[in-house]
């Protein structure tokens, strides 16, 4: 047998006879714990600032996106309101209102509120001309009834939104 081969074999056998003492685990684990604590506690302030920045970075675009989404649900796009004498600013005001509602109402309530508002807006758009003048007389009798129904259903929601926003 060549010395290379025999060396390999004896080293392997020798290694097999060496066993890591089980109690060494406790010690290494302790060092590990220390490392983890050190790592976590290194600078909690710095970490908090980083988390804050990350949160803002995520929130800003989602707020901006959600902003256009909410009013878009009602109108389709800001072009709709511009065709009826509204401006981009009006659209923004409505958007803020919807955002406020979203914050104040529960999820189910908000869904219902959005649905009602949508119907209401459809009616209003129908009777509003391109100069923003409302022609209520152009509503049919059924439509008028629906309008009142919607208004009465929306009433409690408005109260709720306004009550909590101006206590």
């Amino acid at each position: 047998m060549s010395i290379d081969k025999q060396l390999r074999e004896e080293l392997r056998k020798g290694a097999d006879s060496m066993h890591c003492p089980p109690d060494l685990y406790g010690r290494v684990q302790q060092s590990y714990q220390q490392y983890v604590n050190e790592k976590r506690g290194r600078s909690p302030m710095k970490k908090r600032i980083l988390v804050g920045i990350a949160a803002i970075a995520i929130l800003i675009p989602s707020a901006a996106l959600a902003g256009s989404y909410l009013a878009d649900d009602i109108f389709g796009s800001s072009a709709t309101i511009e065709q009826h004498g509204g401006s981009q600013e009006d659209y923004q005001v409505i958007e803020e209102m919807l955002q406020a509602a979203k914050g104040k109402l529960t999820e189910d309530e908000f869904k219902e509120y959005m649905e009602l508002t949508k119907q209401m807006v459809q009616l209003k758009l129908k009777i509003t001309d391109e100069n923003g003048v409302v022609h209520e007389e152009s509503l049919t009798k059924e439509e008028q009834q629906l309008f009142e129904q919607l208004a009465s259903k929306l009433g409690p929601y408005f109260e709720k939104i306004n009550a909590t926003s101006n206590p």
Partner: peptide, 13 residues
């Protein structure tokens, strides 16, 4: 001890 344990003559080792 190691040699006893393995019952081998690990001379090179």
């Amino acid at each position: 001890k190691a040699v006893l344990q393995s019952e081998m003559q690990l001379e090179l080792f």
